[in-house]
Structures are given as structure tokens and as C-alpha cells.
Amino acid sequence: MDNRTFIDKIAERTGRTREEISDLTESLRVIVAEAIKDGDIVAIPSVGTFETKLRGDRITIHPASGKKMLIPPKLTINFKPSSLLKQKIR
């Protein structure tokens, strides 16, 4: 399901226009991004949690050149599905 169908579906369910929904989705994205950037956890019941995790830097060997590379640390977004959701999709 791509973005357009997703938005359409929500619009249909809530009875609102597509523009409205895509605005709201954009706002939701901004809010979630702000929250997890600060290290908060966004927990949505029966769906899961969004949070950031620090992936430390590490040394790897470049597969092609065989050189040692230092990979810098990174903050990644982690989504952990709730057990309910896990059960549903099983």
C-alpha cells in the first residue's frame, strides 16, 4: 500500500478530505520526529513504540577494497511493534 492509497483510505474512514489528512500526517511526522529526537519514546497502544537508538561507531573492513573503515555513530529510529500487533500479523 503506497502513500496515496493509505491517505485515501483514512480520508474515507474519517470522512475528510485528502488534503486535510495529508496535512495531519505531515504534522504527525513532525511531532514524532521532534519527540524521538529528544530521546522520548512515542508509544501507541496496540501498535508499538517509536524511539531512537544510538548505534555506536565501529570499525569495519570495506569488502571491496579491504581497507579498514571507521563508521561513525548514528542515531537510528527504532520501531518496536507491540505484542498485540505481533500476534495479529503472525
Partner: peptide
Amino acid sequence: DFLREFFNTLVDAMETGENVRIKSL
């Protein structure tokens, strides 16, 4: 309402085994 429907749609789609692509998220 929006949030509830948003996540319900998401979960429903995933239940059917579909991948859901939400632009910018």
C-alpha cells in the same frame, strides 16, 4: 479520530500482509 484511524488503517493493512509506505515517515 484521525490518529485512531491512521493507526487502525496501518494495522489493518499489515494484518493482510501488505507493506505500508507512508511518505515522509
